[in-house]
Nucleic acid binder design. Structure first.
Ligand SMILES: Nc1ncnc2c1ncn2[C@@H]1O[C@H](COP(=O)(O)OP(=O)(O)O)[C@@H](O)[C@H]1O
Length: 398
DNA sequence: CGTCCACCGGAAAGACAGGCGG
DNA sequence: CCGCCTGTCTTTCCGGTGGACG
């Protein structure tokens, strides 16, 4: 047993890898060159440039779907700006903060505490009144003449959880010596609507939009990375183009496109292939699709899962179901595993939620004399259904 | 046309958990 | 550490309804 494993490891190490630098396909990697974002880079640089004359730049709101390069572009421009400032002897700092990081920036207190710590002022993780932390932050910031640019990534998460108050306090801070500007990054284009008007006007003095990448742009981005990540000849243009085309057709997310290429590479490597072939890519696409569905399913509450499971089982017998069908089956299921069933009213809403998630179709129709109900069918098919069933059985120990 | 099926879906109150502030 | 508050899920109540049937 031990020796055979030993052999396996030895073989693994001896095997020539098609990867040179797999990291180049992960989000950790910082690309040397940012493609197809020239306009956004230039615009952001223009907006921030006044800081080099020690004038307060406008605050900026950056919008765009996930994986459109908002974070890389912002970090890049900020880094360049810091370099220029340094060479001119201007006291300029940029602080980057992801509002979604749990336990770091998801409350007003923690947000200020974290900003303080970035400035070298330690604040106890709890115990002080929020107001005190706020005052300390103002004190550190204003301790000397300086330019501060604060990047608030995933700012929509902050607004959803905390409302606009935090931002109001931040943007209207009274400073004597220092000057402070904000860059807000949002995945949600409707963020502006949910912002308090006072905050909106001050935070989005300028706006930059990041549209999703199209297939050609993704192709270029992937190609650049592939050159770094893979050995020569391990991947060709056809594969890259197909990978880009697929990703563009889904949502134009560069992060997911890179993921897809990496997974295809891993599949090829596992088969000892010396290059990625179309079949590897197809398999990778399938894997990403099932993974994304499974991820959604895993997040369902147990009752939602049971409702979905009921729908799947009943769909084997009949392809269109009604709310009543699913509900009575669901109730039996609950009884057999000793769970209190929810009311039909609730299950009716759960069915709607499953529809929104794209797992089932649940459309309200009228069958005249025979009542009004949701017509329910599955939106997904194939092996993934079996996986969902397995998962359900696992969860409930059936 | 009216009836009546089999639910729909709004409103509001209750249950419960987890986190905050003191 | 504890009570309170907040947010999420769920129940309860109940009026509403599209259209096949008669
Ligand atoms: N124009 C680009 N050139 C190179 N890599 C990019 C580009 N845009 C995005 N990426 C890569 O895609 C991933 C996601 O980008 P990111 O900036 O985090 O997206 P967002 O912040 O918009 O969600 C990162 O790993 C980044 O390296």
């Amino acid at each position: 047993m031990q020796t055979s494993l030993h052999n396996l490891f030895e073989e693994f190490l001896k095997k020539p890898s098609i990867f040179i630098n797999k990291e180049a396909l992960t989000p950790k990697y910082n690309p040397r060159q940012i493609l197809h974002r020239e306009d956004q880079i230039k615009l952001l640089a223009q907006i921030l440039a006044p800081s080099l004359k020690f004038e307060k730049p406008s605050n900026v709101l950056i919008y765009g779907k996930p994986g459109t390069g908002k974070t890389v572009v912002t970090k890049y421009v900020c880094a360049q700006l810091e370099l220029s400032a340094k060479s001119k002897g201007i006291p300029l700092d940029t602080l980057y903060l992801n509002c979604k990081m749990k336990k770091v920036a998801d409350t007003e207190y923690r947000l200020f505490a974290y900003l303080c710590s970035l400035l070298g002022e330690q604040v106890p993780p709890t115990g002080l009144p929020t107001n005190e932390v706020y005052n300390r932050f103002v004190k550190v910031v204003d301790s000397k003449p300086r330019m501060l640019i604060i990047v608030l990534d995933e700012i929509d998460a902050l607004v959803r959880k905390q409302g606009s108050d935090v931002l109001y306090n931040l943007t209207r801070m009274e400073l004597e010596n220092a000057k402070m500007s904000f860059i807000g990054i949002s995945n949600d284009a409707t963020l502006k609507d949910s912002l308090d008007p006072r905050v909106r006007s001050s935070l989005s003095q300028e706006e930059i939009v990041f549209p999703p990448y199209d297939a050609l742009q993704l192709r270029d981005i992937l190609w650049k990375r592939a050159e770094i990540a893979f050995t020569k000849g391990a991947v060709d243009e056809v594969i890259i183009s197909k990978c880009a085309a697929y990703s563009a057709s889904v949502d134009g997310d560069a992060r997911k496109a890179l993921d897809l290429l990496r997974i295809a590479g891993e599949l090829a490597e596992r088969e000892n292939a010396n290059s990625i072939r179309e079949e590897h890519l197809n398999e990778a696409i399938k894997k990403m699709e099932t993974d994304s569905v499974l991820e959604i399913v895993r997040k369902l509450t147990k009752h939602s899962l049971l409702v979905l499971y009921s729908t799947i089982l009943l769909s084997k017998l009949r392809d269109v179901l009604t709310t009543g069908n699913v509900y009575s089956f669901y109730c039996k299921l609950c009884e057999s595993i000793g769970l209190n069933p929810l009311t039909q009213r609730r299950v009716s809403d759960l069915l709607d939620e499953l529809d929104v998630l794209g797992l089932i179709k649940a459309e309200v129709i009228s069958k005249g004399r025979y009542g009004r109900t949701r017509e329910i069918s599955l939106s997904i098919k194939g092996e993934i259904l079996d996986k969902i069933c397995e998962l359900t059985k696992e969860v409930f120990g059936i």
